[in-house]
């Protein structure tokens, strides 16, 4: 019970802090800085370069994942087939064709 009261007091005290946040004066040269920035900085470039880098990172990750998948599958998919079994298949196919021709 006492613990709950303590928690409730803490919550109230935390919410009350908002009332004590004071207003702050901005930089005295805000106007000059803004004007200067308006004339010099080309904003979209920042965003474009960020998106380019993000896209590049994603493409690289996908390439690596694809490469691993390719290597993994090429090692595992063909593992049941040996040279002998391949030859046997060819011979049996040939025999099958022969027997079909006889009929």
């Amino acid at each position: 019970m006492k613990k709950e009261k303590n928690i409730s007091d803490e919550v109230d005290a935390t919410l009350e802090v908002l009332q004590r946040i004071s207003q702050v004066e901005p930089n005295a040269f805000l106007y000059e800085k803004t004007m200067n920035r308006m004339q010099t900085v080309k904003e979209p470039m920042l965003g474009r370069s960020l998106f380019f880098r993000q896209s590049l990172a994603v493409v690289l990750v996908l390439l690596v994942v694809n490469a691993f998948t390719f290597v993994y599958l090429s090692k595992n998919m063909g593992s049941n087939e040996t040279k002998a079994s391949r030859n046997y298949d060819l011979v049996s196919d040939y025999r099958l064709d022969e027997s079909q021709n006889n009929y």
């Binding site: 207003q23 702050v24 004066e25 901005p26 805000l30 106007y31």
Partner: peptide
């Protein structure tokens, strides 16, 4: 900016 600068900043 003089009128609104402080409010926007805050």
């Amino acid at each position: 900016m003089d009128d609104y600068g402080k409010r926007v900043y805050n």
